[in-house]
């Protein structure tokens, strides 16, 4: 999931590739408060998961955001399964 997130951050949010390391902090990676809103909207569009700006702002690093995305996708998949 980290690689998919990384591609989206570079291609769609136009963040600088060299600033994007898993352990990079949110601001260090270039994800300011407005980019976080864009990211939340993009994740909803591309992965059909709703992650709020507030939850994204709490993630300390790029890897934490990837983990958050992975959890939400897994949760959405479980909810979709017929009972």
């Amino acid at each position: 999931m980290y690689e998919e997130l990384r591609t989206l951050l570079i291609d769609d949010l136009r963040l600088t590739e060299s600033d994007l390391r898993p352990e990079a902090g949110r601001e260090e990676a270039g994800l300011d408060s407005l980019a976080v809103v864009e990211l939340s909207m993009l994740l909803s569009e591309r992965f059909s998961v709703e992650i709020s700006d507030e939850d994204l702002l709490e993630a300390a690093t790029v890897a934490d955001i990837a983990d958050l995305l992975e959890q939400q996708i897994r949760r959405a998949a479980v909810q979709k399964q017929p009972s």
Binding site: S33, L34, V36, V37, E38, S40, M41, D53
Partner: peptide
């Protein structure tokens, strides 16, 4: 700002 950004777009 953040909420305005989202709704504006």
């Amino acid at each position: 700002g953040r909420e305005v950004f989202r709704h504006a777009v």
